[in-house]
Amino acid sequence: MATKTKKAGIGLHFFANPARFLRFARKIFPWVAIVAVACIVAALVLGLAVVPADYRQGDAYRIIFVHVPASYMALMIYVIIALASAAGFIWRHPLADLIAKSSAPIGACFTFISLVTGSLWGEPMWGTWWVWDARITSMLVLLFLYLGYIALNSAYDDPTKGARASAILALVGAVNIPIIKFSVDWWNTLHQPATISKFDRPSMDASMIAPLLLMVVGFIAYYLAVLIIRLRSEIAARRIRNLRLAQVGG
């Protein structure tokens, strides 16, 4: 039992040493970057050129290959931020704090892309750029949560304090997201029943699933690649900050 817990401790704290993490990151970065570029390019070629047009929506539906993976990433990254925040808050794990902080702008971008592509898709399909649909509204609230998180994180002069404050916010937000989602669904069904049912989700053909999954894999790899770049610069920035502080102190 004792050895087991010790082992778990090593696993968790293995990357607490930034130098060790940087070595690991340098090794996997090219692979992640290659996978990201290959998958996204393949998915775009498949989705835009190979897959046949939908019989009802024509070519406009092809935006799904960006829209759905982006929405998926937006949610996944918030979950990652919440988990990393919990790890950072409970174990004071420095890398977990950095992962949470560096993930937030990427997640906010994916949320924004999801909203914009959804709006672009809505124009030809529903005849309007924006509908106060339950899903759209909860994505918008998610974007606000991301922005609040980023703002709080950068509001503190001391980065460790900023990390802890925003960790609390991320955890409160994580408790709230299901409630917000549920309440927005409820609100929408109460106010405007089924105005949007003209849009039937097409049951997807297998040939359409392939580019979608490729794009999800590509986006995940892209996220990891950007995360590694951001973590590297973040670690470097902290090192510079510590050196400066040491200079002032000495």
Binding site: V141, F144, L145, L147, G148, A151, L152, A155, Y156, A165, I168, L169, V172, G173, N176, I179, I180, F182, S183, V184, W186, W187, L190
Partner: peptide
């Protein structure tokens, strides 16, 4: 979370308003 922050006043609205959404929806409902 914003206690002692210089820009706390503006920040607090960004933090709190998204969390207020459910209360607003159910109360008005």
């Amino acid at each position: 979370l914003t206690v002692g922050l210089r820009r706390g006043g503006v920040l607090i609205s960004l933090l709190v308003l998204p969390l207020y959404v459910p209360v607003l929806i159910f109360a008005v409902g």
